[in-house]
Design a binder for these strands. Structure first.
Lengths: 147, 147
DNA sequence: CAACTCGCTTGCACTTTGCAAGTCGAGTTC
DNA sequence: GAACTCGACTTGCAAAGTGCAAGCGAGTTG
């Protein structure tokens, strides 16, 4: 699932070469919507990703410049991951995919606050998420609010 | 890659269970943006999908109520596929993924007309695409314009 | 009616996925 | 400072998915 060369010149095909699998956007979700940064946090998400797959996906996201890593100043064993500016550009697509999933499957759930934000202005929502994410990436850790 | 039960209650995870692979959204693209309807047309797209994979994906889309099929009145061997109303709801996510791919990889290309439409009002673009698609699904075949 | 087309199906080799155990460097504990 | 724990992986392997290429039944063509 990691082609060396593009299948076509279509931007949609390019995007699917990047994240057309079941896990990549879940990792991006956890970074963007939930503010998670650590390998063990991603591994602990409810979907239960395998550690070799998580390693693989994080590496590919880093290689593509969508994610960056830095050592955890509090514990040298740990690495902190965050979305780069390029990675933050996934926001609009993430929001629309989320909306679609909510509309298609009423059994799916989101925290009420996030759900109400989805019904509002997308640009404002994304600006807020990006701001919080940049603060995390800078090492400021505001009180976490689950996405 | 076709789980019987959801991995979690997250709508994004649900969406990725539906189309988190490299081919499904390309098929939806061909229906929505290019007006394609026939198996051989999907198979002939530049990415070169394998026929067993195409069959599999069309069946799953149909089973999920996103795509419907009808016999081709002109040739009893053929089937015509189209997006249902549920399937048309993928439009916003498709548009945002396309925008992201264009932004991330300048080597990707779109027809100039489509590209300029992407820069405009999303709601108007989607309404127009949906209208044309519904006409196709009703068996009216206006002169095709490549997406 | 023979030859061809269309939408699949099939067998099989290859690739990816995911489980579970293990590794190794960093950090902690006593 | 030895022993242990933690964290981010790596590894072997079985299962599942992918994709190639050939083939089949129904329908079309001349």
């Amino acid at each position: 699932m990691s082609p060396h060369e593009p299948r076509s010149s279509c931007p949609l095909a390019y995007a699917l070469d990047v994240f057309g699998d079941r896990w990549t956007l879940l990792i991006v979700r956890d970074m963007l919507f939930r503010g998670l940064q650590r390998f063990s946090e991603f591994a602990a998400s409810p979907e239960g990703i395998a550690s070799n797959i998580l390693t693989d996906r994080l590496k590919r996201l880093e290689d593509l410049g969508l994610v960056a890593r830095r050592p955890d100043p509090e514990d040298g064993r740990r690495v902190l991951y965050h979305l780069t500016e390029r990675g933050l550009r996934l926001g609009p697509a993430m929001i629309e995919i989320l909306r679609w999933g909510l509309e298609m499957d009423p059994d799916t759930q989101l925290p009420a606050r996030f759900r109400s934000m989805l019904g509002g202005d997308t640009t404002a929502l994304l600006a807020e998420l990006a701001k919080k994410h940049r603060a995390l990436a800078d090492g400021n850790t505001p009180e976490e609010a689950d996405g």
